[in-house]
C-alpha cells in the first residue's frame, strides 16, 4: 500500500469547498438547534400541558430514531408534504431538528437545576416570569450546562458527515467522490479522518477553556 499524497494537493479546491460547507452546516445547524432547544424547553416547563405534550413527543421521536432515517424522511418524504427541499436545506434543517431535541433536554435540566428557592425569592420581589428566566435562571444554568452544550455541539459536528448520504456536497461526500474516481481511498479517507479528528480536538479544547473562563461565582455555598 503506497500513499499518493498528490491526490490531496491536486484536489485541494474541492476539498476546501467541502470543508467550508461542513463548517457552514455545523454552525447554522447548531445555531438553529440551540434556538429550537431553548424554545422547546421554555414552552415545556412554563406553559400548559397541551402545548408540552406534542413537544415531549417531538423530543422522544428525535432521540429515539436514527439521524439517517430522519434525514430520509425529510428529504425523500418531504415532497409528499409539499416540502421539496434541496439536499442542503433538508440536511441543515434535519441537523437543527435533531440537535434541538437534545439541546432542549439540556436546557430543561438546566432550568430544573436552579434551586426553587431562588425563583421564589425573585417572585417575592415581584419580578416577572420572563425576567426571572432571563436574569435569574439563564445566567446560572448556562454555566452549569455549558459542558453538556459543548459536548452536544461537538457531537453535531460529527453528524454532519451523515449528510453525505443525501448527496450534500460536504467534506465526506467530496472525499468519497474523489476516492471513487481515483481509487485512492486510503489517502483520502485517512486525510478526512485526521481533519475531523483535529477539528474536534480543537473545538473540544476551546470549549474547555470557555468553561474555565465563565463561572466567576461558584454554586457550592448555595442550597
Amino acid at each position: 500500500m503506497t500513499f499518493n499524497l498528490a491526490i490531496l494537493t491536486d484536489n485541494w479546491p474541492l476539498l476546501l469547498d467541502g470543508m467550508l460547507l461542513t463548517i457552514f452546516i455545523w454552525v447554522v445547524g447548531t445555531a438553529i438547534g440551540l434556538a429550537i432547544g431553548l424554545a422547546v424547553a421554555v414552552l415545556q416547563l412554563f406553559t400548559n400541558r397541551w402545548l408540552a405534550a406534542p413537544l415531549t413527543f417531538y423530543v422522544a421521536v428525535m432521540r429515539g430514531t436514527p439521524f439517517l432515517i430522519q434525514l430520509f424522511v425529510i428529504y425523500y418524504g418531504g415532497p409528499f408534504f409539499g416540502l421539496d427541499l434541496t439536499p442542503l436545506v433538508a440536511g441543515v434543517g434535519g441537523l437543527a431538528l435533531y440537535g434541538g431535541a437534545y439541546f432542549s433536554e439540556i436546557f430543561r435540566a438546566g432550568f430544573l437545576s436552579v434551586p426553587p428557592g431562588q425563583i421564589e425569592a425573585a417572585r417575592m420581589m415581584g419580578i416577572s416570569r420572563l425576567a426571572i428566566i432571563r436574569h435569574v435562571q439563564l445566567p446560572q444554568m448556562l454555566v452549569i450546562i455549558l459542558p453538556a452544550l459543548a459536548n452536544m455541539t461537538v457531537l453535531l459536528s460529527k453528524e454532519t458527515a451523515v449528510l453525505s448520504v443525501i448527496t450534500v456536497n460536504e467534506m465526506t461526500s467530496v472525499v468519497q467522490s474523489i476516492g471513487s474516481t481515483t481509487f485512492a481511498f486510503a489517502e483520502t479517507l485517512l486525510f478526512l479522518a485526521v481533519v475531523y479528528w483535529a477539528f474536534l480536538e480543537i473545538v473540544t479544547a476551546l470549549a474547555r477553556r470557555l468553561e474555565k473562563r465563565v463561572g466567576r461565582f461558584t454554586l457550592r455555598n448555595q442550597h
Binding site: K158, E159, T160, A161, V162, S164, V165, T172, Q176, G179, F185, A186, L189, L190, L192, A193, Y196, W197, L200, E201
Partner: peptide, 16 residues
C-alpha cells in the same frame, strides 16, 4: 474513535 465521525470510520474499514 470519539473524534472521527462513525460514518468515516465505517468507510475507512470498508475501503482500507
Amino acid at each position: 474513535f470519539r473524534g472521527v465521525p462513525l460514518l468515516v470510520q465505517l468507510l475507512l474499514s470498508y475501503y482500507c
